[in-house]
Amino acid sequence: MNESTVDDSMELSEGHVTDKIRACLDGELAPDEAARVRAHCARCRACHRAWTEIENLYRILESDTGAEPLRPVWPGVRERIGEPRRGLARFPFAVGASAAAAAGLLLGLLLGSVGETLGSRAESSWSEVGTLLTDSGTSLDDLYLSGLANGGESQ
């Protein structure tokens, strides 16, 4: 937003829009409301400053570009889908003695967290994953183009 357009003498009869600025920048407002917020921020110094601050913060957050998976996920998933219930949650202790003292007190919590992982193991079959396809942005065309329709041996 252009600093030169800001007008200190703006009439504030319409009220500040500071509480709508983030939603506006996030693309969550209807077009007419977004236009109203932008127009206000172009003229009101306080709201203009709030707008710029959020924009700056977003720019800083963008400097974290994220990481790539360390290795493809599929081979491990494929291997474990074939397994019976075993192994979906490896018991997560790699901590040894220091954890042992805390373990008594916190066993319930830990079991809860492991149980949450194990408990989700519903039996599924390959045919059921078809319901996910369209919604997940994976089309049958992709499937046939990739050659995976013939058994997933394309790579």
């Binding site: 974290d64 994220g66 990481a67 790539e68 998976p69 493809p72 996920v73 599929w74 998933v77 494929r78 079959s125 390959w126 045919s127 994953v129 078809g130 996910l132 396809l133 997940s136 942005g137 994976t138 049958l140 992709d142 499937l143 990739s146 995976l148 329709a149 013939n150 058994g151 997933g152």
Partner: peptide, 29 residues
């Protein structure tokens, strides 16, 4: 179109490959 079991496996593999990066990115953060 009739999907075979092998085709469904291929479909799920595509789904995993399509979403592994967003899921990993989310979990890593």
């Amino acid at each position: 179109m009739e999907r075979t079991a092998r085709g469904d496996e291929g479909a799920f593999r595509l789904l995993v490959e399509r979403w592994e990066r967003p899921v990993f990115g989310f979990l890593e953060r």
